[in-house]
């Protein structure tokens, strides 16, 4: 199918983009289009206007800052994945990005767009939540910072207002002595995961974030739980559901298996850095 008609704006400045959004309550931002255009073509979305941010200057940045790395709204997944700075400062971002879609999709899709899209089956929302990162957005009232914990409010629903543009995401650096790992099971590499898990360990602290298990990215604190009981403990906080891709039981089993695997691998990572 083809998209329904919409008005199109391609502003040259952020201020114009914010004004265009403010002027049309049913407008949507077009970034990489790798999630939005399929929704338009399937007519699951029919916005009155698209505000294309691809012409905005200065948003394709990847900068190391004090305490972490900041990724601009037009930095494509592929550029973030290829960045040695990102890999050094917060390797979990690179590990997870290698599982986001196929290279061809990563060439156009943006990491920030994936965060705003807030798909519980996507990798980057879980990573941002686990790391305690944040998203900077610009709206008619100026700029504000949304902590990851307040960003993902429901299935495909983020707390970015309709008249706001996300300008950058901040991923905190990996602390000395800490370790991270990422594991997922998908039908084919590059497909959306049946279940995925990201782990952050630091001394006795163990946290695991899950994708494709609940309606929103979910992080469970497993500190103090013996390794072989962690999967079961995590399931107390998760609601694996069945769909055409996997039954609820199978998802629960993947949580058990992946939890042990990802935590062990995060400890190996921490040891390797010591």
């Amino acid at each position: 199918m083809k998209p329904a008609p919409f008005d199109y704006r391609r502003p040259g400045t952020l201020a114009e983009a914010v004004a265009a959004l403010a002027g049309e309550p049913n407008a949507k931002v077009l970034a990489g289009g790798q999630s939005l255009v399929p929704l338009l073509s399937m007519r699951l979305a029919a916005p009155a206007m698209l505000v294309d941010i691809n012409g905005l200057p200065g948003l394709d940045t990847i900068n190391v800052e004090e305490g972490g790395v900041r990724v601009g709204a037009l930095a494509r997944h592929a550029a973030v994945l290829a960045s040695p700075d990102v890999r050094r400062v917060q390797p979990l971002v690179s590990l997870a990005l290698a599982n986001v879609a196929h290279a061809t999709i990563r060439n156009r899709g943006t990491t920030v767009g994936s965060l705003v899209h807030a798909d519980a089956a996507a990798e980057m929302p879980v990573v941002l939540t686990l790391l305690g990162g944040s998203l900077d957005v610009e709206g008619p009232a100026g700029r504000r910072t949304i902590p990851a914990g307040e960003l993902f409010v429901g299935p495909l629903e983020s707390s970015v207002h309709h008249d706001e543009i996300a300008v950058s995401a901040f991923f905190p650096a990996l602390a000395d002595g800490a370790g991270v790992a990422f594991e997922e099971i998908a039908r084919r590499h590059g497909d959306y995961a049946l279940v995925g898990a990201a782990a952050l360990v630091d001394g006795d602290s163990v946290k695991v974030g899950y994708l494709s298990v609940s309606d929103v990215p979910t992080v469970v604190d497993l500190s103090g739980v013996p390794l072989d009981e962690m999967g079961e403990a995590a399931l107390e906080h998760l609601e694996p559901a069945g769909d055409i891709h996997a039954t609820a039981d199978y998802r629960a089993q993947l949580v058990r298996v992946l939890t042990t695997r990802v935590v062990r691998s995060a400890y190996d990572h921490a040891e390797g850095r010591a």
Partner: peptide, 13 residues
């Protein structure tokens, strides 16, 4: 030079 899906881009962009 980079592969992309032409069905996921609008021509105006």
């Amino acid at each position: 030079g980079s592969p992309m899906r032409s069905c996921l881009m609008v021509a105006v962009s």
